[in-house]
C-alpha cells in the first residue's frame, strides 16, 4: 500500500508541477484586458457586500438601495458580490481586483473590513474610483464614507428612554468592535441624558467573530434573555442578525424593537413584525453610495473622506409606523442640541 500511494503521490505531484509550468504564461488580468478593453467604463458599478449578503434587511441592503437607485436614475448597471463568513484580506482583494478588472467603475466595498483591501487594489487601478463604507482608505482614487452612528443612536436612546415602561432597555451588538461600540455609546448616552433612572442592558453576540452579523438565532436567544429580565425596548445593531432579535421582541407583549441601518419597518421581509418596530436608526449608506456613483458618472469622482452626520441627515431616525410621533418634540429638541453642538455625543462607551 505504501509503495503504491507513494507512486500515486509522485505522479500527482509531477502532474501538478507540469500544469503549473505550462500555464504560467497568461495572467487573468492580461486575458481580461484583451476582452474588455473596448467596452471598459460602460460596464457599470461593482458593489462588494459584507457578510450577510444583500438581503440582510439592514446594512448591506442600504447600500444595495443606493445601487438600485443609481440603476434607475443614472442608467448604470450594478454588479453585486457577497462575502463569505471567515474571509481573509486575500479573498477581499481578489473580489475587488476581479471587479476592477472587469471594468466596473466605481468599485465599492461595503463594510470596514474592505478598508485595507481597497487601499491595496486602488493602487493597482489608478483609473478606477474605489469607495468604501465605514472606513477611510488611502490613495487619490479612493473615497471613504463614514457615518455618525453615535449621533443617530443617541436619538434611539432618547426614544427608548421615553417609551420604556419597565425602566430597562437593552442593546445588542453583533461584534464588539469599535464601530458597533459607537452605536452602544450613543444609545447609552441618549438614555442617560433623557432619564438617568433607566438602565441599559448591553450584550454582544460575539467578541471578535464576524459571524455576529449573520447569526439571527443567537440574537434571538439574547433578546429572549433580555425580555425575561424585564427589558422592554431592545436596540439591535447587528446586520442580518437583527432579524432574530426583532422576531423575538415581536413575540413579547408591549415590547419594542429598534432597528438599524435601514428603515426596518419598511423591509418586506420583516412585514409581520412591523408593529413591534418602534423606529430604526437609519444610516444613509444608500445616499452615500448613490452620491459616489453619480460623481463618477458625471466624471468628477469624489475622493478623500466624508463623514455623514446628523446635521446633514446622514443618519436619522425613521418615523414610519408613527410610533414615535407622540415624542417628536423631544426628539426634535435632542436633534437640535446635537446639531448646535450643545451635546457632544461620545463615540466610545464609558
Amino acid at each position: 500500500m505504501r509503495r503504491v500511494s507513494r507512486l500515486a503521490a509522485t505522479i500527482a505531484a509531477s502532474a501538478v508541477l507540469a500544469l503549473t509550468a505550462s500555464a504560467c504564461g497568461e495572467s487573468s488580468t492580461e486575458s481580461n484586458q484583451n476582452e474588455n478593453n473596448e467596452e471598459s467604463g460602460e460596464l457599470g458599478v461593482g458593489i462588494a457586500f459584507d457578510v450577510g449578503g444583500r438581503n440582510d434587511h439592514s446594512f448591506n441592503e442600504a447600500a444595495a438601495r443606493g445601487g438600485d437607485l443609481a440603476e434607475e436614475e443614472l442608467g448604470v448597471t450594478v454588479e453585486y458580490q457577497t462575502a463569505r463568513n471567515g474571509e481573509t484580506d486575500a479573498d477581499r482583494v481578489q473580489r475587488l481586483t476581479a471587479l476592477a478588472q472587469e471594468g466596473y467603475n466605481p468599485v465599492i466595498g461595503v463594510g470596514f473590513l474592505y478598508g485595507n483591501a481597497i487601499t491595496e487594489v486602488a493602487a493597482e487601478f489608478p483609473d478606477t474610483t474605489f469607495g468604501v463604507v465605514d472606513s477611510v482608505p488611502e490613495g487619490d482614487n479612493t473615497f471613504g464614507m463614514t457615518f455618525a452612528e453615535h449621533e443617530g443612536s443617541y436619538l434611539a436612546g432618547v426614544a427608548a428612554a421615553l417609551k420604556t415602561e419597565s425602566g430597562q432597555v437593552g442593546f445588542i451588538g453583533g461584534v464588539e468592535n469599535p464601530l458597533i461600540q459607537k452605536f452602544q455609546a450613543g444609545f447609552e448616552q441618549g438614555v442617560a441624558d433623557t432619564d438617568p433612572e433607566v438602565t441599559v442592558d448591553v450584550n454582544y453576540l460575539y467578541r471578535d467573530d464576524d459571524r455576529g452579523f449573520s447569526d439571527p438565532a443567537r440574537a434571538a436567544e439574547q433578546a429572549d434573555g433580555m425580555l425575561g429580565r424585564g427589558v422592554d425596548v431592545i436596540y439591535t445593531a447587528a446586520g442580518s442578525s437583527g432579524q432574530g432579535s426583532i422576531e423575538q421582541v415581536a413575540g413579547a407583549e408591549g415590547a419594542w424593537a429598534i432597528g438599524v441601518d435601514s428603515d426596518q419597518y419598511e423591509q418586506p421581509g420583516l412585514v409581520e413584525y412591523q408593529d413591534s418596530i418602534l423606529t430604526s436608526v437609519i444610516k444613509g449608506v444608500d445616499v452615500a453610495v448613490f452620491d459616489l456613483i453619480e460623481s463618477v458618472v458625471n466624471e468628477d469622482p469624489l475622493s478623500g473622506h466624508h463623514e455623514y452626520t446628523l446635521a446633514e441627515n446622514g443618519v436619522s431616525l425613521a418615523t414610519s409606523g408613527g410610533f414615535i410621533d407622540d415624542i417628536a418634540p423631544q426628539l426634535e429638541e435632542a436633534t437640535q442640541r446635537i446639531v448646535d453642538g450643545d451635546v457632544e455625543v461620545q463615540d466610545t462607551p464609558q
Binding site: 500555464a23 504560467c24 497568461e26 487573468s28
Partner: peptide
C-alpha cells in the same frame, strides 16, 4: 480561470 498565472500564485499562497 484557476489556471491563470495570478490564480496559481493566489491558490498557492
Amino acid at each position: 480561470y484557476g489556471s491563470k498565472s495570478d490564480s496559481q500564485v493566489w491558490i498557492i499562497n
